[in-house]
Design a protein around this nucleic acid. Structure first.
Lengths: 321, 321
DNA sequence: CACGGTATGAAAGATATTTTCGTCCCGGTC
DNA sequence: GACCGGGACGAAAATATCTTTCATACCGTG
């Protein structure tokens, strides 16, 4: 059982353990979240690998029937590339990818028919737009949930629940998500602050120390304005969390815990910001509920009283309570 | 590819069919009805084969993870027996049985999901929280899409597309939604502004006149801070839109068009703000896409150039496209 | 235009699967 | 009770499949 470092891929977690049935200790291979994973990882793939990934995502059942040589032939690449792709997707090798593919195919088979696959067109009637958007966001939610690493999530929750203070960084659309998280945390009595001004964010980040938490929210993972404060927080000993759609992006360098959001195919009338926001919000909600669970003793009364406080700002409804 | 008749089993394919690797003409490999097949065929199996079949039927997922040697070892038999069993069950070889097994396991897995119907409990493991939240938000999306009045939506879109300027009111969680809408409209070249300060909102509302649009976002529909500016806008002749979960609430008094968001059951660990936000965002997205369609000529380049402008604020990814 | 680094496929090397073939067990027969 | 077919069964050879290595071609960069 020699364990040399092989090639360059593998993500640097070299403790491969061939032949231990029951699930690898680091990353349980994705069961159904494969299409999502393909989209998430596609940007970091080389062209040939993208061809393979596309074929796989396109027709899981068909690919499951192919040997590594067959798939290589189909995609016009080599066996090595196919194996490399399988590795990138999180499987020990092609054999395991193939197994997952068979599972995925079976699920699709039994599951629902792929309803509204077409993209939104300029001349779609408004009813179609509603249906397509709703379907798309539902899909995004499912993908995100399937792809979310619960170990990382739990770690982030633990850090948050015990934090002296929490800073959240996000700009643009992600800034709103950052604010959403902050609002929620404040409601259960945690000290949280959202920063959208990069300068102020850095200025504040230097105040952080061990026991504090810093969270960066960025879809691309390469937004300098967000990375910088996270780096500072990281270097000052704070626990850092990155919520990003690109798990191999620069922001993860300074993140103790990485929470991956899903990436839906985008188009002109459906900017990436839309589905990434949906995905990010789900992650944020999970963080919130997780923390609320951990701190239930103090969170429950805090929630109740913030609800109370808002009541008198509502006018009486025409009917009903 | 020589095709001698091998061993004695194979169920009387005596009429050798050299080189037709298509798929067995008699029995397409069973997809899911494997357990049944095992029981049916068990009597005609030898003892060793029964042990193998039993193991397979007993734990498809586990067996799918095993190699032919592994399964042979587990059942105390030999590789040959395992292959023989696979053949008897209707597969060309063990490899295909294994694939079917993986599919079966995936199906069982997904079938066992609907524990999600219950509410989120304080002691739910984090994985359940993720699943439940995702499921819940999916439900909210479906409800919202189903309940959205497309006529009202179309009217609101028309008003927005032709507006001189647009003001959006929202406080608290709805304030973020208001900002989201504003960001989107700005990106396609429309003049939009989000107000979360009630005083400023009113101050600005008096500037509005016919041809302008005012949008109020409030889940309860009775948030005075949001109703007030909408009323002012309404009285100044602007076209007013209310995005609310309560179509009979005070805010609708001053709304030309009411867009109804859905209301999911809430609970302690799942505040109303969570699902209402999801719902509101879907409505906002619909508005955005609708407007983008109507103003495609100008929206498309605007979208493209705002994308351009952001590009240089991103650091290079570790491996990029 | 040279350079360094990376992506890529051909082929060697390692595993897994399938087939072959001989042994052994079982039940019947003389 | 010994002998004899008939088939179950597994060890090991043969083959298919997967994985790794390594040399080459490609690409962006200074």
């Amino acid at each position: 059982m020699t364990n040399e470092v092989k090639e360059s891929f593998g993500g640097g977690r070299g403790s491969g353990d061939p032949g231990s049935p029951g699930g690898s200790p680091v990353a349980p291979p994705a069961p159904a979240a494969l299409a999502a994973k393909v989209r998430t990882l596609a940007p970091s793939m080389t062209r040939s690998m993208q061809r393979v990934a596309e074929a796989v995502a396109d027709d899981p059942a068909g690919c499951a029937a192919l040997t590594v040589t067959g798939l290589a032939g189909l995609t016009g690449t080599s066996e090595a590339t196919v194996v490399r792709t399988a590795r990138l997707l999180g499987y020990p090798g092609y054999r395991d990818l193939r197994l997952a593919l068979a599972g995925l195919a079976a699920q699709q088979q039994s599951g629902r028919a792929p309803a509204i696959t077409t993209d939104i067109a300029v001349d779609d009637p408004i009813a179609d737009v509603v249906a397509k958007l709703a379907y798309d966001e539902q899909q995004t939610l499912a993908d995100t949930a399937a792809g979310l690493d619960t170990v990382q999530l739990a770690a982030a929750v633990t850090a948050l629940a015990g934090a002296r203070r929490t800073d959240v960084y996000g700009v643009g659309a992600s800034g709103l998500v950052a604010q959403d998280l902050t609002q929620k945390l404040l409601r259960i009595g945690l000290l949280a602050h959202a920063h959208s001004d990069p300068h102020l964010a850095v200025t504040n980040a230097v105040q952080l120390r061990a026991g504090d938490v810093a969270i960066a929210i960025t879809h691309s993972g390469s937004t300098g304005d967000v990375i910088e404060p996270l780096r500072v927080a990281f270097e000052h000993g704070a626990t850092t969390v990155a919520v990003t759609g690109r798990p191999d992006s620069p922001v993860t360098q300074y993140a103790d815990h990485v929470l991956t959001t899903s990436t839906a195919r985008e188009s002109e009338l459906r900017p990436a910001a839309m589905s990434s926001r949906t995905s990010q919000l789900l992650v944020v909600d999970c963080l919130f509920v997780g923390v609320a669970q951990r701190t239930y003793e103090s969170a429950a009364p805090a929630l109740a009283s913030s609800y109370e406080a808002l009541a008198h700002r509502h006018q009486a409804a025409r009917r009903g309570p």
